[in-house]
Amino acid sequence: MSEPRPSFIARIFLSFVASFRTLFDSEFAAGIVALRSGARLPADTSDREVVERKTPEPPPPVVTQASPDSALQLLGMLQREGRFIDFLEEDVETFSDEEIGAAARVVHQGCRKTLREYFDITPIRAEEEGDSVTLKSGFDAAEVRITGDVSGEPPFKGTLQHRGWRASEVSLPKIAEDHDVSILVAAEVEL
């Protein structure tokens, strides 16, 4: 940031310009006062202002690609216990609601078992859905989404539409090093 020091000739010119500007430019004069009392160079001040102006600007967006491994693993687990992929891949149009319902039982029972076993899932809000809820200022917008007539400042009063879910603990099985998670379920040949 340090500029080259002005030469003698340049300093003569500067002393003229400065004396006039000190007379007519109050801000410039304030700078001279500060300079004489041993404060930092005015150049520093203007630099800090630039920095301060930059701070409120949002950082460049960071979006990362989650590793597909645990997603594939979860699909495999849901398929294994609850026939999840089989169910979604099957064409349901030709079947009656009763038949689909029966299959849904298998999916529900198995997927729920997986969910209960490897995730600790709890509601975010303890209130019953339909209860009125007050959100104080500083509420966590990630936890609670406000919708509808959104305006003004908290506290917000509203009705709980959905309690929300939080996975408070996840303990997926560990995967062996050379295990191919893209095989969701192996083909089966009975000998």
Binding site: E90, F95, A102, V106
Partner: peptide
Amino acid sequence: IVVASRGSKLIGGS
């Protein structure tokens, strides 16, 4: 109670 089929056809074969 539903006993799922062993093949990938879940809805038809249960």
